[in-house]
Design a protein around this nucleic acid. Structure first.
Lengths: 235, 235
DNA sequence: ACCTGAACACCGTTCAAGT
DNA sequence: ACCTGAACACCGTTCAAGT
């Protein structure tokens, strides 16, 4: 859904028909970020797309950090609301957490820049949305209140960690002009050639690395943590 | 340990005595990054500190990304080797993993920039070092070979996720001119004022947030995952 | 109230020219 | 072989001036 900008020709120079809106700026930013990565969002390219000057943006947005947070928040809001629609009535909290986590995984896959945007906005709106949705399920699971923060934290950190690393892989691959398969191939080959004395484990991992499925492994990690939540403490 | 640069005065202009070395560039970069954050490393400030011109760096280093990865690798190499010294002989794999994880936590606390540097270098040297050390313990734990990657992955992603978020908190706080306590106070207050209808869980978390201990919670998360590794699969 | 667009103070990187 | 430093092509952000 590419934003369409109405343009009116007045006295020889191009001029926007309606006034710029914050929402319009954010949507166009998302398009730019999705299309050409973190480096693709520039006040100059953005204002060009919006048929205005770079200074105009600042009337609606404080600065670039604010813009990134707002764009991120828009994505997260959609992501945290979507899975609720596809819920079967009797779903367990575990199942819902898996669904939410997967939704985050897919969102971070589709919009690789939100990872670092989330990092720029700790404790702010996007983060709160995620904490809330996961937290409600933690509560239903019967985790004692004292452990709420630790538990949500663990899941959150894992999810954001994976997202960040996946985004990194994609970005790195793109810089090298590789697709995902080529990239894994390259890393796998590099690891298989490591010194067997110094890196026996990583070396042995090369084969698994080549053919693994990010999404499946992500979910396996979620399950690992969920099992941990369900296991008795060692005291 | 501030690098000392020997300078010789030749024919009126300052000139370095020994030639520039890659290692020297990296050490000075680390000092700059530690001292003034990610934005503190600039080819101009760096070359100034090294008493040379910005172009000179490029004889020893490919580009900024290469520089960041090298600086990160130096830190990670130290971090992954240090804990081995303080080991009691009969330590369990779990204990060693906890030790390694804590070492990473502390390193990321001391050098908040390594999180994003690691992100820039997936599958490269710094990452391999971490995977290797943790992986060896996973093997000793008796995790089946097929699950090696998934298991290391889960731990790694969690550790990097926490590190990233902690770095973000610190950086954000610094931008706002707050210290850690003020920052937590601010977030906690903001969360306690959230709409109780929409954000009941996050709202109730505000108090826990205010007084929590990052390092302790980090370790609790590691234990959660370790418990998960030790629990039987639901099939 | 909202926009324009030149200007400012930065970046990373390159490269002819020096030693 | 290694370094110099001006120059290039960018950034985010500001702000007087316009409508």
């Amino acid at each position: 859904m590419v934003q369409k900008v109405r343009i009116k020709r007045t006295s020889g120079s191009l001029r926007r028909e309606e006034s710029l809106s914050r929402e319009q700026i954010i949507e166009t930013s998302i398009e730019l970020l999705d299309g050409s990565g973190e480096g693709g969002l520039t006040f100059r390219t953005l204002s060009e797309r919006l048929a205005t000057g770079p200074g105009a943006i600042y009337w609606h947005i404080a600065n670039k950090s604010d813009l990134l947070t707002a764009a991120c928040d828009a994505i997260i809001a959609r992501t945290m609301n979507a899975p609720l629609a596809s819920l079967t009535p009797g779903a367990t909290p575990q199942a819902i957490i898996r669904l939410l986590a997967l939704a985050m995984f897919d969102a971070m896959d589709e919009h690789p820049w939100i990872g670092s945007a989330l990092t720029r906005a700790p404790g702010q709106s996007p983060m709160v949305r995620i904490v809330e949705r996961i937290g409600q399920q933690i509560r239903i699971l019967g985790v004692p209140k004292k452990e709420h923060w630790v538990t949500v934290s663990a899941l959150l950190n894992y999810i954001l960690g994976v997202g960040g690393r996946n985004a990194a892989n994609g970005q790195f691959a793109r810089t090298q002009g590789l697709d995902r398969t080529d990239f894994l191939e390259a890393v796998s080959t590099a690891w298989s050639q490591l010194d067997p004395e110094e890196y026996p484990f990583a070396r042995g991992l090369a084969a698994q690395l080549r053919s693994h499925d990010d999404r499946k492994d992500f979910l396996a990690g979620i399950d690992l943590i969920l099992r941990g939540i369900g296991s008795p403490h060692r005291t």
